[in-house]
Design a protein around this nucleic acid. Structure first.
Lengths: 216, 216
DNA sequence: GTCTATATCCAGATAGAC
DNA sequence: GTCTATCTGGATATAGAC
């Protein structure tokens, strides 16, 4: 095939995505320094050199993934808060969609797990670290606000909103990591049934149409 | 000081413990492959060579720590189950003691975090991996049994016992990691108040005398 | 755009002096 | 028991051919 700038662009895009997808899984399973570029290459059926053709370093790869993961979650929270729903329904919606995403979309749980891991880790690239420091509290704050609102309306259970939010994300992250580790093989906890019990007052089920998190 | 086998033994013991303590923190923060022996040495004011004098490899160090952490938790569970308490009081006791340990004892939360991290990680030494595979479900099973018992007696809330156990440990681990990351600086979630609400029926507070987890 | 070969560096581990 | 000097393997990253 002759030089075709457009086709080249397509290839570049596809390669980048394949590399990112492969690296995401390896980073989650083995950590930043435990992941070798050669593994990423083998996993994506490329040569080491080709990976470096698309990403200048292992760190850049990591930074890109962390940024993507954070954006994904933060944007979802913004969309959630801008929805015209009562607070307790927002919580219910968030739980439903998050759990659904984690269950059905393999990369969704990897994104959650990556951010969680990166937040723990000390020796990650400065750029990723700053990004995390600046942004990883946003989802916590969003849920805290929603819970506060719900408590004022009397539709969400009592308790320190920050603690409940911590509790909320803690469980989501735990589920994501559990799913990332054992996948579909193990039976996964039925958190849908647990959440409403402790967090919100019960109410009848409602159907929601549009997607909350993009790209699932 | 002349050769004194007894004093030597003391020194050996003290050195080993210092190395283990330093490595524990680094492993939790940076992962296995992200932790360098030179860092462990610097942190404990020893030379690289001296660390190798006490532990033949970085992996041995890691294996030792994982084993210790698992034992700590598993023994605590055995002690818990052998206690002559009603199930819901066993749960209450476990929560109280675990949270107390995580809050007051810096190394307690590191142990929890280490096992959690090691369970996620793919590229850990085979011996540690087998140990984890064989043992890390035990605490889950113990809590599952207690919850089952409590449900039969009607003192613990309904729900799949395995899910509730997952939920239980998930939150404990989350708290431990949170504490390991931010320490006392950040205000830590008041999980004592959250737990009883979702897990067990309320009952009056009771004082317990003896230690549940050794070495705290 | 893709591959192979290779330079470079760094961390794990050892040897031997004190 | 402790340190310094050193060997060695392996991983990051680059150069250049196709």
């Amino acid at each position: 095939m002759p030089r075709n700038p457009e086709a080249n662009q397509k290839i570049r895009q596809e390669r980048k995505e394949r590399i990112l997808a492969g690296a995401l899984e390896l980073f989650v399973r083995n950590g930043l320094s435990g992941t070798k570029i050669s593994e990423v290459a083998r996993k994506t059926n490329m040569s080491d050199g080709l990976v470096y053709h698309y990403f200048s370093s292992k760190e850049e790869l990591f930074i890109t993934l962390v940024e993507g993961a954070l954006n994904r979650i933060i944007e979802a929270c913004e969309r959630l808060e801008s929805m015209d729903l009562e607070p307790h329904k927002q919580i219910k919606y968030a739980i439903t969609e998050l759990v659904k995403g984690i269950r059905s979309n393999p990369s969704a749980c990897l994104y959650h797990a990556l951010v969680f891991q990166a937040a723990i880790c000390e020796n990650i690239p400065g750029k990723a670290k700053k990004n995390i420091q600046k942004n990883h509290v946003k989802p916590y704050e969003a849920i805290t606000r929603i819970i506060s609102n719900g408590q004022k309306l009397g539709t969400i259970r009592k308790g320190n909103p920050e603690d409940l939010s911590f509790f909320f994300w803690n469980t989501i992250n735990g589920l994501a990591i559990h799913q990332a580790m054992y996948g579909k093989s193990a039976q996964s906890p039925q958190l849908e049934s647990v959440y409403p019990i402790f967090l919100i007052q019960m109410e009848s089920k409602s159907n929601v149409r549009h997607k909350w998190i993009r790209g699932s």
